[in-house]
């Protein structure tokens, strides 16, 4: 039994660069599956990098961001901090960077959808806006002058 213990066994673990590369590859594979599922079922998907890449630094996700490239659309949401929203070069795959009010990065998410949910105006907000607009019109001094000829 003691002899068995002396058998030299070396477990080869990948180094950090290899682990980062493997993680990026895994995420890209998952994105391919999420896009395929979205096209066939309409089901959206989200990968949260703060959770998925929790053993890594935010900077180490930059090569993945570069591999996904930049698409045609970008937007910024402002409220409770801000969110930078960019479509990647793969339509339907969006990169969202969440920042808090102190400009600290909270998380990065990759969303698979027609467009990120955050961009969509919500019906209750639209109704409140409509009410404000109506009040604005009521409060104006007069109706716009109508030109006559």
């Amino acid at each position: 039994m003691n002899k068995a213990i002396t058998i030299p066994i070396a477990v080869q673990k990948p180094n950090r660069a290899q682990r980062v590369e493997q993680l990026h590859h895994d995420i890209l594979e998952e994105l391919a599956q999420l896009v395929s599922r979205f096209l066939s079922t309409g089901e959206k998907g989200v990968i949260d990098l703060r959770i998925r890449a929790q053993d890594f630094l935010a900077d180490e996700m930059q090569p993945l961001r570069e591999r996904l490239g930049k698409g045609e659309v970008s937007a910024k949401f402002e409220g409770f901090g801000h969110v930078d929203i960019e479509e990647t070069s793969y339509p339907g795959i969006w990169w969202l960077s969440y920042f808090d009010a102190e400009e600290q990065l909270e998380t990065q998410q990759i969303e698979v959808a027609w467009f990120p949910n955050l961009l969509k105006a919500q019906a209750p907000d639209i109704r409140q806006g409509a009410a404000r607009l109506a009040a604005e019109l009521l409060g104006s001094d007069a109706s716009p002058a109508v030109e006559t000829h």
Binding site: D48, F80, E106, T107
Partner: peptide
């Protein structure tokens, strides 16, 4: 806004 609230919840869960 509801959008602001969803952003808040997303950041919170993450």
């Amino acid at each position: 806004s509801r959008r602001g609230f969803l952003k808040f919840c997303t950041a919170l869960t993450s």
